[in-house]
Design a protein around this nucleic acid. Structure first.
Length: 874
DNA sequence: ACCGTCACG
DNA sequence: ACGTACGTGACGGTA
């Protein structure tokens, strides 16, 4: 049996992968799509062929002989896009890490290296596969040298294989004759001139008839198409040059030691580290990683008896910095890990000799005594630790501030980014069981890795936060907010389950009626909730004109249907059905499932999710309870205060626009805010040059839309959609707006310029948002980046401000021992459940703290209401 | 798991 | 020519 060698044309495959795989970057903004695509092709080929040897050829930068000939002939080569160019060294690094030899030689193209090695190894008795996107290489094909050309198709990557036989079948010439063919017909992409007027058809005919250029020339008088004959007579030199250009040198003086190319284990620790850095998460599964981590794991101790546990806690209490984690799964404490020096990290399981209660009490004591403590996800652990002292450092939040674009913040990221260390993730150690796993050793290791990385990484995180100007933000806003959010989650909001049920039943009744009507009008029953089926009914059966299309079919979105409503009565029924179905499923039924035993809904607030610094809310999301439509708004009546309490709801009035006025420093807008109660009206008056009292409702509406648009990172298209006007008109509005408020225009431009230069934008309080999209080659992506650069400082600063207000309101309510509690935040709004006798004080506190959260050039106004339910209070 | 849709600021 | 407003989360349907 012949051994097999796979040779890969590095640049060619990287190039192909670059254009075949959609844009992909890691969280640092490094482009990775080509490397990713290359690896996928590589793994596919290795799986198919199971070769014994593998090598990859690259051109070196220095111009090669053939390029020089070409350059002399006609200008320079096409430049590589920078997004691809930056991936070349990464690709080489990855291959080297996997132990794959790189074939490179100054003055030789990859083609020549591939040809030389292929022929040489064929002689040694090997089967050789050459993988390239370049059809030039077909000249190398023989019985034992197979040329493999990957093609990206909709179904994935397919590979065309060519031995000599297939070349002959497909091109009607032998592999060496491919050179003659190319030389005659030329190749624009390879910059081979060829003979003028000779294309693929004629060239093939001539090669089949005469075999070579030289022989064709010898019979030049017989050549049939006169065009080709004349080309030969006048441009023979061009054909000879082309042939030289097209011929691959199969006898390059390169050193190739077959044994170096022997395939051993590609999945080395070095490769694993690189894959992690590149964030090729679905390729990581190919590695079995335990070896590189054993050095750290030897520091992990499982505490085995009560005396030892006591001892560990006692020592920890005296430490300057304690790293710890309460390990829990589905609300049950499994154990605690802690450590204060890197060589000794302990895991104390809550079983046998100690109870979970004992552990939590001791841990609380330690935290109260220790100077400082670090962990990840403090808020999730607070229910087990009744700490008064707020001296915890949440490493996950630190990571979030350093890069808010990531999906998750786990200890392995700290290890990678702060310690240059590769550690296995919880997922890798415990699988999807998580900390519910029965594997005690793995649980210990997972817990201790977290404690170890936090202990070692804290100083670096602190340093990075300081370097990036976010230390105050972390210390004064984000960390205190953790405790505020914990209090809010614990408090929850009371919901009237009975009222919710009635509301749902009321909806059901109307939904049934609508269903009947819709089926009747459609002439058949179908699933109205299926956009696909609905599309077929509306646009095929009923022949309504379709507006937009989505990837999967016709769009049936509300804005499309609204335009269609006059065409057919069914459409407005569908719109109503949709509205009610949404209310029923998401709100009536959805919320009911979240009412806890105490009659309250305890939804979760998330502090490390959004790119801008806002808080997000889930299980359920109470930040998107309906309000705009009356029917939906009614659901707010089920949110009620405890007996003896009322709701106080306070929201900032146009906080984002006020923030914009402040940051941009635009005098006119600032002045407008100092004077007018109705900012949209005064904007209309100034932009359209009409007296304040003569602004028409339409002008006000338009001005309001522009104000919103500005905050979102204005585009004429977006505004035109919003106002249903032409793009040109929208552009005129924007232009007028910028003429009126030149400071705003300047600020927005500056934001984009800063983002382009520095790669990120910042809020008034120093929060950063990276904007990697700005360096994209894709117009859409880049435009998105520009809007992000305009919007994030505004949205983010507003988020910072309300966070400050929340912390202060909560602190004052607690410090002054009120029974009233802050229970919800909805971006620019705070909801307090106030004891009736404390109402006046609560209103006072809310007003003071929200107002005073930031000192801007315009004042921060709030609107405040009280009520017996959330509907009334808003 | 992903898409389309739609609720909020 | 490209095909968009910024930021979220939940649902039902479909692959």
């Amino acid at each position: 049996m012949r051994e097999k060698l796979v040779l890969i044309d590095g640049h060619s495959i990287l190039n192909r992968a670059f254009y075949g795989v959609p844009e992909l970057t890691n969280s640092e903004g490094l482009h990775t799509n080509a490397v990713y695509g290359f690896l996928n092709i590589l793994f596919k080929i290795l799986a198919e062929e199971q070769p014994q040897y593998l090598a990859v050829a690259f051109d070196l930068k220095a111009p090669t002989f053939r390029h020089k000939m070409y350059d002399a002939y006609k200008g320079t080569r096409k430049p590589q896009p920078p997004q691809l160019h930056e991936q070349v060294p990464v690709m080489k690094e990855v291959l080297t890490a996997m132990g794959v030899p790189l074939l490179m030689k100054e003055g030789y193209e990859a083609d020549d290296l591939l040809g030389t090695v292929a022929k040489r190894m064929e002689k040694e008795g090997l089967d050789v596969s050459v993988v390239s996107g370049d059809r030039d290489l077909l000249q190398l094909a023989t019985e034992h040298i197979m040329i493999r050309i990957p093609k990206t198709k909709r179904t994935g990557t397919e590979i065309e294989d060519y031995h000599a036989k297939e070349v002959l079948e497909k091109y009607r010439v032998t592999p060496p004759q491919i050179i003659e063919l190319k030389a005659m017909m030329g190749d624009a992409s390879d910059n081979i001139p060829g003979l003028p007027g000779v294309g693929e058809k004629t060239a093939t005919k001539l090669v089949v008839a005469y075999g070579t250029i030289e022989n064709a020339c010898a019979h030049v008088e017989e050549i049939k198409p006169t065009k080709a004959k004349n080309a030969f007579l006048e441009h023979y030199d061009l054909a000879v040059l082309s042939k030289k250009l097209a011929t691959i040198d199969t006898d390059s003086p390169i050193d190739f030691v077959l044994e170096d190319a022997r395939l051993t284990d590609l999945y080395t620790p070095e490769a694993f580290a690189l894959f992690k850095k590149l964030e090729f998460k679905n390729l990581l599964g190919r590695f079995q990683c335990d070896a590189p981590d054993q050095k750290i794991e030897q520091y992990f101790y499982a505490v085995e008896d009560f005396g030892e546990a006591e001892d560990v806690f006692a020592q920890a209490a005296g430490a300057a910095l304690v790293s710890f984690s309460v390990i829990s799964h589905k609300g049950e404490v499994k154990g605690i890990s802690l450590g204060w020096e890197k060589e000794k990290i302990y895991y104390i399981p809550a079983q046998g000799f100690v109870t979970d209660q004992y552990l939590c009490e001791k841990m609380t004591e330690v935290l109260e005594k220790a100077d400082a403590a670090v962990t990840m996800n403090v808020k999730e652990q607070l229910s087990y630790l009744h700490v008064e002292k707020k001296n915890l450092f949440d490493a996950a939040i630190a990571m979030y501030l350093l890069n808010p674009l990531k999906d998750t913040y786990a200890y392995e990221d700290i290890a990678k980014e702060c310690l240059d260390l590769l550690v296995p993730s919880v997922q890798e150690l415990l699988g999807k069981e998580d900390f519910g796993s029965e594997d005690e050793k793995a649980v210990k290791n997972a817990a201790c890795y977290g404690t170890y990385t936090c202990l070692e990484g804290k100083a670096k995180l602190e340093e990075k936060l300081k370097e990036n100007g976010m230390w105050d933000l972390f210390k004064e806003i984000e960390m205190p907010l953790v405790y505020t959010l914990y209090d809010m989650e614990k408090a929850g909001i009371k919901a009237d389950g009975e009222a919710l049920k009635q509301y749902g039943e009321q909806l059901s009744g109307r939904i049934k009626e609508l269903e009947t009507t819709i089926y009747d009008l459609a002439g058949e029953t179908f699933n109205i909730n299926s956009p696909k089926q609905l599309g077929v009914i509306l646009f095929e059966k009923l022949q309504l004109p379709y507006g937009k299309k989505t990837k999967t079919g016709y769009s049936t979105a509300a804005d499309v249907l609204e335009k269609l409503a006059p065409e057919a009565p069914i459409v407005s029924h569908i719109l109503e059905y949709r509205q009610l179905a949404k209310l029923k499923s998401t709100y009536a039924d959805g919320l009911a499932g979240y009412i806890a035993a105490d009659g309250r809904i305890h939804s979760k607030f998330h502090q490390t999710i959004t790119a801008t610094g806002r808080i997000s809310n889930t299980e359920p999301n109470l930040q998107n309870i309906p309000i705009r439509m009356e029917l939906g708004r009614m659901i707010r009546k089920v949110f009620i205060p405890e007996d003896g309490f009322v709701f106080v709801d306070a929201d900032y009035s146009q906080i984002e626009l006020r923030v914009l006025a402040h940051i941009s420093g635009d005098e006119r807008l600032i002045e407008a805010y100092r004077e007018a109660q109705d900012i949209h009206r005064i904007t209309a008056s100034q932009v359209f040059h009409v007296p304040f009292d003569e602004v028409t409702p339409l002008q006000r509406r338009n001005a309001k839309a522009v104000n919103f648009g500005i905050v979102y990172g204005i585009s004429s298209f977006g505004l035109s959609q919003d106002l249903s006007i032409s793009r040109k008109e929208a552009a005129e509005y924007i232009e007028k707006y910028f003429e009126t408020y030149p400071g705003i225009k300047q600020f927005l431009d500056q934001s984009v310029a800063d983002a382009k230069e520095k790669g990120y934008v910042t809020t008034l309080f120093g929060r950063r948002r990276p904007v990697p999209e700005l360096s994209s080659s894709n117009f859409m992506q880049r435009s998105f980046g520009e809007r992000v650069a305009m919007n994030s400082p505004i949205q983010g600063t507003a988020a910072d401000i309300i966070k400050i207000a929340m912390i202060r309101v909560n602190e004052r309510l607690k410090a002054e021992h009120f029974r009233s509690r802050l229970i919800l935040q909805v971006h620019d709004e705070l909801l307090v459940e106030a004891a009736k006798e404390e109402l006046d004080m609560v209103k006072q506190i809310l007003a003071e703290e929200m107002h005073g959260a930031a000192n801007l050039k315009v004042c921060l106004e709030i609107d405040m209401h009280t009520g017996e339910n959330w509907y009334e209070a808003k």
